[in-house]
Design a protein around this nucleic acid. Structure first.
Lengths: 339, 339
DNA sequence: CGGGATCGCGTGAACGCTAACATTTCGAGA
DNA sequence: TCTCGAAATGTTAGCGTTCACGCGATCCCG
């Protein structure tokens, strides 16, 4: 910066004013400084700036497994929104779902000097892990516990699960079976709860949910069990990947979907419209989740402490071909993928 | 730090020595300092440290669309490896595939003070964009151009495409059709090239490749075209998502896979084993790509300038049920997903 | 028992920038 | 022409570390 100042024949402070676009610099000197900057290829040192201003222009994102469609999409949404607001995003992946792992990840980010953190780790254990955290650190939890005293952006899991279950019931199914996600994920619990509530309200029998871990493999395992049970006519899978496994298992068992069994997934991954059959599912707007999270986080950073807020991003039921009315209406509809 | 020093009755420099685990501190004073740190909840300021050391402990990752399975997995691999080496990872997504967008993204990261950059943006335009970059910035390109004078970690696209095509030919197919990825992606070009080479070497006819954009939708569109052509018996899709769309189109057309047509994908996404039919595909080890990229980058940072290196991560052909010998051998095999 | 090597720790400066204040320059009105 | 205030620019200090020294205490060996 000093070099630029000398070359432009001004003081370093004036250079600072120019690079920060502060007022009070005569246009002629401004261009002179700009020219010097250009000539020397000067870039301001962010570390020095962060040191003196106390702001790093960096946000942290803690994510459990950024390979899954949901977290990856949310991360993408956050990053795009951060770009708009001139913030950087640094990521920290969790190695386990244990409480110390969460603390450690956040600790790492704090050490690096992030101004705030978004946690995309919808774990039950998270609420506890957040308890013993520096309270002055702005935090937003995606899919976090509503009871915790922090900002939360959440997807309408309950409403989504309700929509899925009600859709199946409205098609005439006596009840709906459920292949659940891992029980230490809040989303999984909420989807299960929404499913159960809907069945109870409809006076339908509530069969035991089958355990899954989001993977197609676990869906397949659950599907093999369900395919052996002749009275199963409707299934709500807690995500699309498991639905794929279920479809596979039923295909192998010779029980057509939706001919014999109707199936609803959750997520609406980009491929969902092209599965065989095209999958009826609950669409989540992950991009919106990312944007809202960031907005909330920036608001906290600006405004300082304030009452915790809670945003809900609603889901959409996307009806495709994996659901049909019962009793099986003869030949399955065959139509082109809708989307 | 000064507060800690005073509380422990030492100088700030001794505190620095303790937090950096440098030798030359008597064990008794070390514990005293540690106690003071604990008591005051001291954390060292990374900005100050970065300012004086000139090292930010931060790496940048430029990615095109971190929602796709490949980039997301690679990013995950890089982050995990960076964690091992005590580095942070900040991400910068590209908004377009244009050359200035790449420069801008890297510029952003440099402004933030990253020590090196991994570019996961296998674009043809990338090689050019890299040309006018600060040469002293350590860079590794994932799937970058081999001709460029930078480190490259690449997947054996050509070998993978060869394996896929040769597998189909070995099953007795006269030739293999190809649904390609976007032409501005290097990977897409290389897969197409490997496919073409294999056909030519085998003396098979080379049909025109159909264009795609990685999405299931584009695969479906291509599949609808191919399904109308009775002489098509084997297809190589440039990724698994497009293969899903192709499967859908053939299903609708009443042409069974693998009964009438054999299909091979590329990537081996986690769901591939559970599609209907389970998809024969080329597995890519994205985690390994991430690890290697990071190793190369750290090596550059340590060693300074050195001749550009080139690493190839090989692929594996995973044979499942979407491929069969021709002429169609009657009933398709039905077996449980392998994986 | 003396002297040099080693150990343990402290002092001062510097990293590159911005905030706060001080100073100069300039134009307008009396 | 002089005065005065606003605009433009400069000066100084300090952000929290680490680095390069320096200095006294301790140790070992002849």
């Amino acid at each position: 910066m000093m070099d630029v100042a000398i070359l432009a024949g001004v003081s370093h402070q004036t250079v600072s004013r120019v690079v920060n676009a502060l007022p009070g610099v005569k246009p002629t000197t401004r261009v002179r400084v700009l020219a010097a900057i250009e000539q020397l290829g000067y870039r301001r040192n962010s570390a020095a700036r962060a040191l003196v201003t106390g702001r790093s222009q960096t946000l942290g994102v803690v994510t459990l497994n950024s390979t899954l469609y949901g977290p990856a999409s949310t991360l993408y949404g956050i990053e795009q929104a951060a770009l708009e607001s001139k913030y950087f995003v640094t990521v920290a992946s969790l190695r386990s779902t244990e409480r110390p792992a969460v603390r450690q990840a956040i600790g790492r980010l704090v050490d690096q000097g992030v101004e705030g953190v978004v946690i995309i780790a919808p774990l039950v254990a998270l609420a506890e892990a957040l308890a013993d955290l520096p309270t002055d650190l702005p935090i937003v939890a995606v899919e976090g516990d509503a009871d915790a005293d922090i900002d939360v952006v959440t997807v309408g899991q309950d409403a989504g699960a309700h929509a899925a279950t009600a859709h199946l019931l409205s098609l005439g199914h006596q009840t709906v079976w459920h292949v659940a996600g891992p029980t230490d994920w809040l989303e999984a619990r909420q989807r299960t709860a929404g499913w159960r509530r809907t069945l109870e309200e409809a006076g339908a029998e509530v069969p035991p949910p089958l355990p899954g871990d989001w993977s197609a493999r676990s869906g397949y395992d659950a599907g093999r069990v369900l395919a052996r049970m002749p009275d199963v006519t409707a299934i709500f899978a807690a995500n699309d990947s498991m639905a794929v496994g279920i479809m596979r298992a039923f295909h192998e068992a010779g029980r057509p979907i939706p001919g014999a069994v109707s199936l609803v997934g959750f997520d609406d991954v980009p491929e969902a419209a092209y599965y065989s059959p095209p999958l009826t599912t609950i669409r989540q707007d992950f991009g919106e989740v990312g944007r809202r999270s960031l907005a909330l986080l920036l608001d906290q950073i600006e405004a300082g402490s304030r009452p915790a807020q809670r945003h809900v991003v609603e889901t959409t039921l996307v009806v495709r071909d994996s659901t049909a009315s019962t009793p099986a209406a003869g030949q399955p509809r065959r139509r082109r993928p809708s989307r």
